[in-house]
Structures are given as C-alpha cells and as structure tokens.
Design a protein around this nucleic acid. Structure first.
Lengths: 196, 196
DNA sequence: CGCGGGTTTGATGATGCTCAAGCCCGGTGG
DNA sequence: CCACCGGGCTTGAGCATCATCAAACCCGCG
C-alpha cells in the first residue's frame, strides 16, 4: 500500500528517495482501510493526521443548522486530505471527512513528531511546499470563480479541469461541491446539451 | 521604513532577529512609495516581489469582459501582498494590484535569490510558513462562506472580523470584495439598522 | 416486483442584479 | 459666498438566477 505513495513522491519531486528515507516513511505512515461512509474525521474532533489516499475517494463537508450537507472538498486517488486548520492549530474541526468509495489510505500522524520527522526529508518537504502552493492557488481560483462566474461557467470549468470527479462522484455531490442544487445542475446540463 | 517590518517579524515570531539577520533584511527589501491608484502589479505582468505594506492600503482585482472590476483581496498596513501563483511559477498575472491610499511598501524580490536568502533566516521562514497557513485557512473559509452563507451573513462576518477595512475602503469596494453590488450592500445595511 | 439511490421536471418564490434616478457632502473655481 | 462637480451612498422598479418543494422517472438489485 506504500508503493503508490513512494511513487507519487518521486514522481512529484523528480528525485529518488534514499533507502533511509523510504524506511522513515514506512515507519511514519499508518495504513488504513476505509469502507464507504466511514469517517476519516468528524466535526468536533481534532485532525491528527495528514492523509494520503492511495486508492478511493473521499468528501469533506459541513452540516448546516438545517441539517443539510455542503461539500467543501472532494479528493480522489493520489490526493492528500486533512483539515489544515485543525491539524496545525489543534483545534476541533468544523468539517466531516468520509469515504465516498472504499479507500486505502496512509495516515501521517502529527503525534510523536512523525510529521516533523518526515519533513526533514528534503524531497518530501519540497513536495509538500509545492503542494501547499498549488492547493492554495487552486482555492484562490475557486473562491474567485465562485464570486465572479455563473453556476454554468463553474460547472464547465470543473468538467474541463477534473473530469475524474465525474467518475467517482454522482451529480448531486458535484452540485453541492459547486455550491448549487442538484436540480440546478441538472438544468444546466440539459441546457448545455442543446447548445453543443 | 524598515522598522515596521522588523517589528512585525519579531512580534509574529516571538524571537528577536540577530544583527546579521536585520542587515540581510535591509539589503533584500526595496522600499517604495506608491501614490493612490498607482499599480503594484498589472494584469499580464509577472509578479516579481513579495510586498510588505508598511503603511497604506491596496486592493487586488480582476477586470471582466464587460470592463467591470471585481475585488479579490484587500490589504492594509502590516499585511503582505503578492500574486502567489505568478510569483512562484513566473507566469503572467491575471490580477491588478494598486494602491487605494498612498502607501509605503517594501519589496522583496525573487531575483538574485533575495527571496531565498531571506528565507534562510529561520525566524522569517517560520513566520512565512505560519502566514501561509493562516492565509490559506482564511481563503478556505471565505470560499466556504461564499458558497454556503447569504450575502448578509458574509457582511456581518466581515464587519466583525475586519472592522479596519471599513476605515480604509469605501462601501462600494467592500461590496465588490464580498461579491455583491453596492446597492445590495446598501440595502443589507439598512435592513440591519432596523433590527438592531 | 418493489425498493432505493440517483436524476429530471415543473411551479413558485426569494435573493440579488441591472438600470436609472436622486441625495449628500466636501472640494474647487468664479 | 455660491454654484457646480464628482465621488460615494441610497432608493425604486423590473428582471435573471437559482433555491425550494413536490412529483415522477429511471434503473440496478435483492
């Protein structure tokens, strides 16, 4: 189960990991299997791990006062998940993260300095920085487009940029991720068919 | 003009800077004055600096196909500004950043490795990491609330969290930052008066 | 066959936008 | 001193977008 991670890191950073590095990674990451709907993190808990999805798909969401779920993030194979705020500041999370499909994940704990230790590997640290950057940029863009663009535009953009999502998540989940209702999404799609 | 920066860094990190560190910082940062409406970055340019606002206020915005400005970020004294994507990837920026009030700023160039050199100062590097984190978390929250919450809620939140903004920017700028029109903002505020 | 998850359709209503007009107020120039 | 101008803010009428609610449909599966 570790191989996808090792491969991922070396591919990301273009530099191979030393034997020791790999051993450290093997010690640090805790493999875990999740069944569909199983929680990786629940509202109110402190996020104690950075998680690598070796296989599967998860969603992150909040539940509002009316009991409605709002998807804030979707993640699939070879992505990382965590609640950064909760992890770093050790405060209770406002998010729920659960498996949408059965998953194989690798947990990197903050406890006992594992996270810090792994970050002493330059390759890993570099990769993490880059991921931080790209993730941050992506969030910025999403924010921007959620303010400026229409629902339709955002849908098309997602279709273009992350077609994989459509393979792993049903449309009502995608709709929620886009911040619209499933009905609206359905109408948008119908509308598009005609045009194209 | 450097003192606000030095103060800022030591306050953020709780550890004093050594004499050498300060000298490095003095060499690295380029002081600059901006008059109102002067650009710090224009659409199409590559962002070559990370900028510290020692004094003043700036806005970041995009112009859409209809020529309308959409504010994406507001920054005031003791904040940092840059287009992270453009800076890191050296790609043309899609943003404009200009001074809303006269500013005194400090530019940290990427060129000649200044940015990297300054990052060898552990205190600075730590601070930067923390800022990255909090900034990222803030963006995440803004995204989330722009999707889930009503315009009114977002306005109240801003009032609560960044009252300083209201001292530096007129309401139509705030409205744009919130992703609503000035008319809507005006009505929201009137509405609130009655209630309270 | 019937059930459940996912998707679609239609009717209705709220929220926020557009456009157009007017107000307030602090300059500036005659 | 007043008249005018421009930036900022407010108000109102009509409209577009999207949410809500309710119903139906579709299809794989026990």
């Amino acid at each position: 189960m570790l191989t996808p991670l090792i491969q991922y890191i070396t591919r990301q950073s273009q530099t191979p990991l030393s034997e020791e590095d790999i051993q450290l990674i093997e010690k640090a990451f805790i493999p875990k299997k999740l069944k569909k709907r199983e929680f990786l993190l629940q509202e109110g808990e402190i996020c104690r791990y950075i998680t690598f999805i070796a296989k599967g798909a998860t969603r992150q969401y909040v539940v509002d006062d009316k009991g409605k779920e709002h998807i804030t993030n979707l993640s699939i194979t070879n992505w990382w998940v965590s609640d950064r705020e909760s992890f770093h500041e050790e405060t209770p999370s406002i998010y729920n993260i659960d498996a949408w499909q059965d998953c194989e994940v690798l947990l990197l704990p903050k406890a006992n300095g594992w996270y810090d230790k792994v970050n002493t590997i330059p390759t890993f640290c570099e990769m993490r920085k880059r991921l931080d950057d790209t993730h941050h940029i992506a969030t910025q863009k999403r924010l921007h487009s959620s303010i400026v663009e229409t629902a339709e535009h955002r849908y098309r953009e997602l279709e273009e940029k992350y077609p994989e999502f459509f393979l792993h998540f049903p449309l009502h989940i995608i709709a929620s991720y886009l911040g619209i209702t499933k009905e609206t999404l359905s109408r948008i799609r119908k509308h598009g068919m005609k045009k194209v």
